[in-house]
Every structure is written in structure tokens, then in C-alpha cells.
């Protein structure tokens, strides 16, 4: 039997690997025989994940991925250790709800910094000459919030829309190097519900919101499947898209 999503010999950097979705992605990548480097700013969680697998195909590294001063040096170091990468997955970033009157610049900056600037900076550094192989693939985790508005999610939605737009810009630009760039517009994932406690507790349009996701809540490993699909050679002519993985939320 053939495995069309075989990722053997592909070196994949997973940024934000310590989140539940991040770990699910790592798990799936290892299952498809990729070499995985986990990156995040909390070492402890990465150690825990690494210990679960204890494989020579799994490495991790730690620096503050949200500090733009550290990224260039950090990525350079990774390239020195592991050579050029074939894939980058960005599943870092953060959520957060605030009404407009409290959506001040500092809040917007934090959101943009974690959800957009650090992604662009990591992509910028890792696509330098000799750091990323031709034919490689970049995948960013975005959200259906990018295209659907929700009260009090102004900064979050804007950061995800900006992320998707940056993906389209990079995709056109990096096509010369045969590097593909795509994002995934995810709907409600089980792990989000633990994080988004305010929304959860306040029931800010929560029930109608869940009802919109007609296939129910998504499991992290399902998002991981879509990530692997976009990293694999199955999609070597797919670039610049934002793939909806939202259980029908946006219908």
C-alpha cells in the first residue's frame, strides 16, 4: 500500500509546538516519518512532549518566539543545528476578547505581535538563502474569525485576516523558490474551549456560535491532518490559499 502523505526525510519546524494543537501536529508528523523540530517559549512543556516519544527524529529548541529581537538569531541557530528545513508550521499566537472601547493600541499591538509579526519574522528568517529547501511548504494556523466577525473579537479577527493576507503576499513572492505558503481557517477546536474562558463563561453568543459549527467541535488531530496534507507533496500546486477547516461554521 502506498502512503501518499509520506513525509520521510522532510525536516519540519513546528512553532508553538507546546499547545494542544501543536502537540497533535507533532504526533501526526512523526507518524508520517518526518524529522520534527519543536519550537516554543516554554521549555518544560517541550521536554514533556519529547519524553513521550523518545525518538531520534524529534528535537526541540526554546527561545521567545514572540520577541522579535530573538527570532533572527534563534532561527539561524536552528539552521546551524539541523540544516535547511522542508516545512514550517506556525501554530503559535494567542486569542483574546475585548469590546471596542477597551481595544486600545497596546492590546492591538500584543495581538498583532503574537499572531502576525512573529510569523512574518520567522518566515522571513527561515526563507533566507540556504535555510529552506526548494519545494518546501509553510503552513500557518489561522481562524475562521478572519472571515467572520464576532462582537469583541476585533483585534483577534484582524490579526488572523492580516495573517492570511501576509500568506498570500508571501506565496506570490516565494513562488520563485517553489516555496508554498498556505493557512488553515480553523473553527472551534476542543482545546480552544479551555483557553477562551471569558467567552465561555460569559456565554457571549456562545451557544449560537457552536450551533453554527454544524459538524460539531473539531479535535486537534483533525487540524493536524490538514497541516500534514498541506506540508506533503500532495499539495505541491496549492499555494496562497486559506483552507477552511471549520466544521461548516462559515456556511
Amino acid at each position: 500500500m502506498i502512503n501518499t502523505m509520506d513525509l520521510t526525510n522532510k525536516k519540519i519546524l513546528v512553532v508553538g509546538a507546546s499547545s494542544e494543537t501543536g502537540e497533535a501536529i507533532v504526533n501526526q508528523l512523526l507518524g508520517l516519518s518526518a524529522f520534527v523540530v519543536m519550537l516554543d517559549h516554554v521549555e518544560e512543556k517541550l521536554v514533556n512532549i519529547a519524553n513521550k516519544y523518545n525518538l531520534n527524529k524529534l528535537a526541540f529548541n526554546c527561545f521567545n518566539i514572540y520577541n522579535n529581537q530573538e527570532i533572527e538569531k534563534g532561527i539561524k541557530h536552528l539552521n546551524t543545528l539541523y540544516g535547511p528545513f522542508d516545512g514550517l508550521v506556525f501554530c503559535g499566537g494567542k486569542g483574546g476578547v475585548r469590546p471596542l472601547q477597551l481595544t486600545k493600541n497596546s492590546f492591538i499591538h500584543d495581538m498583532m505581535n503574537d499572531n502576525l509579526y512573529s510569523f512574518v519574522e520567522i518566515a522571513r528568517c527561515i526563507t533566507k538563502k540556504g535555510c529552506f529547501n526548494n519545494g518546501g511548504s509553510i503552513v500557518a494556523i489561522s481562524s475562521v474569525s478572519s472571515i467572520k466577525g464576532l462582537k469583541s473579537k476585533i483585534a483577534y479577527s484582524a490579526s488572523k485576516a492580516a495573517l492570511d493576507a501576509s500568506v498570500r503576499g508571501m506565496a506570490s513572492e516565494l513562488s520563485d523558490k517553489k516555496i508554498r505558503v498556505n493557512s488553515i481557517l480553523k473553527g472551534w477546536v476542543t482545546s480552544d474551549m479551555k483557553l477562551d474562558f471569558i467567552q465561555d463563561n460569559m456565554e457571549l453568543s456562545k451557544n449560537e456560535d457552536f450551533a453554527k459549527q454544524i459538524l460539531g467541535v473539531i479535535e486537534p488531530n483533525e487540524i493536524a491532518n490538514t497541516v500534514c496534507f498541506l506540508l506533503s507533496d500532495l499539495t505541491k500546486t496549492i499555494t496562497g490559499t486559506a483552507i477552511l477547516h471549520d466544521g461548516g461554521y462559515s456556511l
Binding site: M112, L116, V120, S145, S146, I147, K148, G149, L150, K151, S152, K153, I154, A155, S157, A158, S159, K160, A161, A162, L163, D164, A165, S166, G169
Partner: peptide
């Protein structure tokens, strides 16, 4: 990205 951010924020 900045323009997409505007469109998305307008929807919210």
C-alpha cells in the same frame, strides 16, 4: 495584511 486587518475588524 494591514488592509485585510481593516476588513476583518469591520466585520466584528
Amino acid at each position: 495584511a494591514s488592509k485585510a486587518a481593516v476588513e476583518s475588524a469591520v466585520r466584528c
